[in-house]
Each structure stands twice: as structure tokens, then as C-alpha cells.
């Protein structure tokens, strides 16, 4: 049975055009800052901007904090649910999928109500408190992807045997978790981490509404006021996303995906 392959080719060609043209156009646009010649002037301006450096550093720090905090919360839970409390699985999975159902803007609105200056836990009163809140917000955003990555990783290894082996050698619980289980799901945890980084680094809504000087609001601000720098920033952001996905592939993380709002 020979089927003509023209249809699939048309689909692929349209897809390639749709996906590559904006990238090419953006790159071309980013090179046009100097009148009449192509140059990397826009990139030079962007990289030289102290606000770029500050906001990017801030977002990177928050992202790393969110990754560490996320691992601390997700790994023990996924481990216990799989090994000891499979009854809890439906509940835990439901919870981890909630961030896909409740839009980020609604969540942050809820935080503002719950943690405002006149509430029981006035996190937004202090800068550190707000940073902590933003970190938690990002942990929440990344929860579906982090949990799924770790859960898949745990399924791939025989955690029961590993645990029993460690127990028979007299290891304590925290030791088992952090010295036996965690190294064995390193790949899964890493892919969850890079995914979290990709989602969080340019996040706009939450950072903006919590009034923190993050990379997302900075991007928006540049976009509203400049012409060529935004194109350069778009290319930089695309390369960062590509690097995160590339690292996931490199570590054998397979096909994970996420969406940022």
C-alpha cells in the first residue's frame, strides 16, 4: 500500500515556515539598531544595561530557590506516595494538576488577599517576605512538571528494593532519601529543574503583581519603551529556553513540556 506523501510534506513545510519566520524576522530586526548596517548593537546595549543584569540575576536566584524548594517538597512526597501511601496518589495528583486549572493570575490574586499587610501572615510587608512568596508562587507554577518528572523517574527505578537494601544496612530515613533515592532520580530531578528554570526565568504576571524587579517585568518595560532591544531580548530568551530544553535532552529527560502564561 503506497500512499502519497504529499500531505505530510505540506503540513511540515507550513509548520516550518510558521515557526522559523518569526525567529528569522526577530533576529533580523534585532540587528537593525544601527542605521544602514547590520550590527549586534542592540545586544551590546541590552547586556550593558545594569537593569538587565540586575533583573536577570534576581530572576535566576528566585528560580534556583524555587527549584531547590520544589525538590524538597516534591521528592519526599512522590517517594512516600509511591512506596507507602499509594492511596494518596489520586489526591496528590489532583493537587499537582491544580496549577494547570487555576490561572496564574488568579493564584497571585489569592496570595495578595491571603498574605497582604493586614492579614495574619503579612508576607508582603517585607521585601524578603515577598521574595519568599514569589518563590513559593513559582514552586506552585512548576509543580505539575516537577512532580511528573520525579514520579516518572521514581517509577523507572526499583525504589522498594533500594529502600530495603539501605534499611538493612541501617540507614536512617533522611539518609535513605537524600543519599540513596535522590542520586538515583538525579536525571528526572534535573529535567524538572531545567523545566522550572525555563518557566520561571521570564515569568511576568506574578512578579509584576508582587512588584518584584524580576526579568519578566523588565522585559515588558523594555518592550513598551524601546524599538530594537526587545527583539534582541526575544532572541536571548529563545536561546535560554532552547538551552534548558537542550540540557533536559542531554540528561536524557525525554519529552517533557510545559507552558508559561
Amino acid at each position: 500500500m503506497k500512499r502519497p506523501v504529499i500531505g505530510p510534506w505540506i503540513a511540515i513545510i507550513i509548520g516550518v515556515i510558521y515557526f522559523l519566520v518569526p525567529l528569522i524576522a526577530t533576529f533580523e530586526f534585532s540587528l537593525r539598531m544601527k542605521r544602514g548596517v547590520y550590527s549586534f548593537e542592540a545586544y551590546r546595549v541590552v547586556f550593558g544595561d545594569p537593569n538587565f543584569q540586575a533583573s536577570f540575576t534576581y530572576s535566576a536566584v528566585i528560580a534556583i530557590a524555587a527549584i531547590l524548594f520544589g525538590i524538597l517538597i516534591v521528592v519526599p512526597t512522590a517517594y512516600i506516595v509511591q512506596l507507602k501511601l499509594p492511596r494518596l496518589r489520586p489526591l496528590v495528583e489532583f493537587i499537582t494538576l491544580l496549577p494547570l486549572v487555576i490561572p496564574a493570575i488568579v493564584l497571585v490574586f489569592g496570595y495578595l488577599r491571603m498574605y497582604n499587610s493586614s492579614s495574619w501572615i503579612p508576607l508582603t510587608n517585607s521585601v524578603r517576605g515577598t521574595d519568599f512568596l514569589l518563590t513559593c508562587a513559582y514552586v506552585t507554577l512548576a509543580l505539575p512538571y516537577m512532580y511528573r518528572a520525579v514520579d516518572t523517574g521514581l517509577r523507572a527505578i526499583d525504589i522498594r528494593t533500594l529502600t530495603e537494601a539501605a534499611q538493612s544496612l541501617g540507614s536512617s530515613w533522611p539518609r535513605i532519601l537524600f543519599q540513596v533515592i535522590l542520586p538515583n532520580v538525579r536525571v528526572a530531578v534535573l529535567s524538572g529543574a531545567f523545566l522550572t528554570f525555563a518557566i520561571v526565568i521570564g515569568e511576568f504576571t506574578m512578579a509584576s503583581l508582587l512588584n518584584r524587579p524580576a526579568f519578566g517585568p523588565y522585559l515588558q518595560l523594555v518592550g513598551a519603551n524601546r524599538a530594537y532591544e526587545p527583539a534582541a531580548l526575544a532572541i536571548i530568551a529563545f536561546i535560554i529556553t532552547w538551552a534548558c530544553m537542550g540540557l533536559i535532552q542531554l540528561f536524557g529527560g525525554g519529552r517533557q513540556n510545559a507552558t508559561r502564561r
Partner: peptide, 8 residues
């Protein structure tokens, strides 16, 4: 997605 996509 997000802001950079808009720029592009």
C-alpha cells in the same frame, strides 16, 4: 511564550 513571544 510570554513577553518574548510578543516581541518576536
Amino acid at each position: 511564550a510570554g513577553v518574548p513571544l510578543a516581541f518576536a
